[in-house]
């Protein structure tokens, strides 16, 4: 059961919808469908945010995006290559999918701030997925540079969605700095290792007053469902779909998984027990079952 939360004793059960500061707000929603994700005041019917990296072609990417039902999708900013035909922007534009530029590839706050400003100029959006990595081998986010960049971008009027480790303290500091969401990783980008520390994801969810988006590490549909069961507001993934043998089919699976996990979260899971609890009425001694 790799990735499943451990029992946490008297403090309650992981994944219980009633824990956390945001339980009552969500309790009004009767159903995972029709309960919108609200990010920086904007509503999204889908809680699946897609990345576009890794797709073998724009055609395959388009099919996967259609199957995913996503309404918000990331792109990266790179030097213009005039020899490249077609643009990921066309794929998104044709589908009415909102573009979320990222700062992937940046190692310093300065690089990330410039990249965000270039993205704002190129794409006409002040939203940015802030991503400042520490090294090429792990692609793990650098918390110091990320926080520095977040402060500068918030001051410059950006809607900042920072990619971070599964660190509850940093998540809280970034929220206080004015970020519109926090995006903790499940495991390293592209690793497919799922959610390595579900307890920390729960701690982030419990404390957060902004949406929590599980970002990076999702390998298959159950990972996405678990993220939602833990109380995340949305899931961002790319490689799990774009590098799957059949991207369109995996995208459909992710769409279902996010919705199933959301519904389970809202429904409130039963407590984990050490022993059985009969689901049929008890048989009284000497009597007969009804």
């Amino acid at each position: 059961m790799t990735g499943m939360p451990e029992m946490t004793g008297v403090t309650g059960m992981p994944g219980a919808a009633t824990t956390g500061t945001r339980g009552p707000e969500h309790a009004d929603a009767p159903d995972g469908a029709g309960d919108a994700l609200v990010l920086a005041g904007e509503k999204f019917a889908s809680r699946l945010i897609m990345g576009t990296g890794g797709a073998p072609s724009l055609e395959v990417l388009g099919e996967a995006l259609d199957a995913s039902g996503t309404e918000l999708t990331t792109v990266a900013m790179r030097r213009l290559d005039p020899t490249v035909a077609g643009s990921v922007l066309d794929v998104l534009g044709e589908r009415g999918i909102r573009v979320l530029p990222n700062t992937a590839g940046c190692f310093t706050a300065g690089e990330a701030v410039l990249t965000a400003r270039l993205a704002r100029e190129a794409l006409g959006t002040a939203w940015v997925k802030l991503e400042v990595i520490s090294d090429e081998r792990t692609l793990l986010p650098d918390p110091i540079e990320t926080f520095d960049a977040a402060e500068r971008l918030v001051a410059d009027g950006f809607t900042v969605l920072p990619y971070i480790g599964d660190d509850p303290a940093l998540a809280r500091r970034l929220e206080q700095a004015g970020c519109a969401a926090v995006m903790p990783l499940g495991s390293p980008i592209g690793s497919g290792l799922g959610i390595r520390n579900p307890h920390n994801i729960e701690l982030i969810v419990e404390a957060a007053g902004v949406p929590v988006i599980l970002d990076a590490g999702v390998g298959t549909a159950s990972d996405a469902a678990l993220a939602m069961e833990l109380g995340c507001d949305a899931v961002l993934l790319a490689s799990a779909v774009t590098r799957a043998r059949r991207p369109g089919l995996m995208a459909a699976a992710m769409r279902d998984a996010v919705l199933a996990g959301r519904r389970a979260r809202l429904a409130g899971r039963i407590p984990r027990r050490r022993y059985a609890e009969a689901s049929s009425p008890a048989i009284t001694p000497g009597g007969t079952a009804p």
Partner: peptide, 10 residues
Amino acid sequence: VEVLTAVQGG
């Protein structure tokens, strides 16, 4: 001079 555009990523 840097001339950038959006590409697949993230």
